[in-house]
Design a binder for these strands. Structure first.
Lengths: 226, 226
DNA sequence: ACTAAACATTAAAATTCCCTTAAAATGCAC
DNA sequence: GTGCATTTTAAGGGAATTTTAATGTTTAGT
């Protein structure tokens, strides 16, 4: 776990750095906003902890700059500015969490765990897409509904995957043709209808609540019925 | 944006639900932990807001159960339990954020924005067009007025979409023929009148304030009456 | 108030869209 | 190449949508 701390107050830095290192984290420290920005741009971190009041660029501008540059790792703002409006400005400038000084160290640690859980978890947890009782495991390429295994062919799998990833959205045949069949314009074929029928037979036929619906003239949706 | 609120205190629910709906969020409500779990398992949400003290399963157990079941959308715990240890327990049971009651509503909204920013890969918009209490979701191709769902066919949808996009402007039949029916000149048909009638039946008939008006000799306007 | 034009409404006709089935083509392993 | 599974094409039928057409109502101008 790599963490960047941006803070000019030596005492706070010491406290955080020591605490984090006890949890086996690698900690980099920047003492002003510019240095923080440079470090964050050049290296990959699991988390940035930043003060708002900083020499050079302040923490809010730093957040915005980082986000504008496409840097997406979690940012926790840690500051003495404690009014509700301060918090709103902080969060809206791109931070993921906001903790007001003085704080208890164990709360900081819990918030750090919450923020970093995702990035770590995503490596370990299985790659499973879900809607209602229908599950799709992208690693094992297996699909099941209500626990019953469903065997799909490659095309059927791609099609269903696209539907699950865009569940709730009505997807036009033109879009499916482009994304699943890689054809840009209609070639007067009905493959899509045939494949929707195949998928339906497998995921919906034996079940009461149908998931794959057609909106005539618009496309298909995968969703729970109302 | 779909949000699930799990809370047994009616007043708090009212406040949150109303505030979120003003921001064009779809809000589902569960009044106890079990119902919350069932809704969260069956549907896809962008965020769950849950109280800790709940009838049935409490908020902490709910978090753990949801995470154990592979449900990964953000959870915000909202509770009166404000000690640091409460927060730590909450965050460590799988929640992403923890807000102590009483809170200012605008802080809740800012935290919601921060939590959902990520999951909405495309912040670009929830893709909703609106006029008065009439809403049109371009993704789900669904339309509602004052919360009541309205089913439209493809042509009706296109027509209404054109009206909403150009609300307040008087649109001639010639323009509609060109934009919606792709014909450049009049073929002595009355399809447009028929379809305006269809749309009116669905969006205006059951409501007091009519939105789709005709300006004889000029065309149609979608607007609030004066 | 009367008339012609513009629009609204309704029902039936025409068409499009989609589902389904089966057969043909393709790809793949042996 | 043969046989099997997958993918694509083709065709028929049914239902929902779209259009036409006929009739009723409102509006604007005289």
């Amino acid at each position: 776990m790599r963490i960047l701390v941006i803070e000019d107050e030596i005492k706070t830095v010491q406290l955080i750095k020591q605490g984090l290192e006890e949890q086996q984290c690698e900690v980099d420290v920047a003492y002003d906003g510019l240095m923080g920005f440079q470090l964050a741009s050049r290296n990959h971190y699991n988390l940035i902890i930043s003060d708002i009041i900083l020499p050079g660029i302040n923490g809010l501008e730093l957040c915005k700059k980082l986000r504008a540059n496409g840097i997406s790792f979690p940012i926790l703002l840690l500051t003495a500015l404690g009014t509700t409006d301060d918090k709103i400005i902080g969060l809206d400038s791109g931070a993921d969490d906001y903790l007001v000084k003085p704080f208890e160290f164990k709360e900081l640690m819990a918030r750090i765990r919450a923020l970093t859980r995702r990035s770590i978890g995503s490596i370990q947890t299985a790659n499973v897409l879900k809607i209602a009782d229908l599950e799709m495991d992208l690693d094992t390429k297996s699909v099941s509904r209500a626990g019953n295994e469903i065997i799909l062919t490659a095309k059927e799998f791609s099609l269903l995957e696209y539907f699950i990833r865009h569940q709730g959205r009505v997807i036009s045949k033109a879009e499916l043709a482009e994304k699943i069949w890689d054809v840009t314009f209609d070639t007067g074929t009905n493959v899509i209808e045939v494949y929707v029928n195949f998928v339906r037979k497998k995921i919906d036929k034996d079940f009461d609540t149908k998931l794959l619906h057609t909106q005539i003239g618009m496309g298909y949706v995968l969703k729970m019925p109302n």
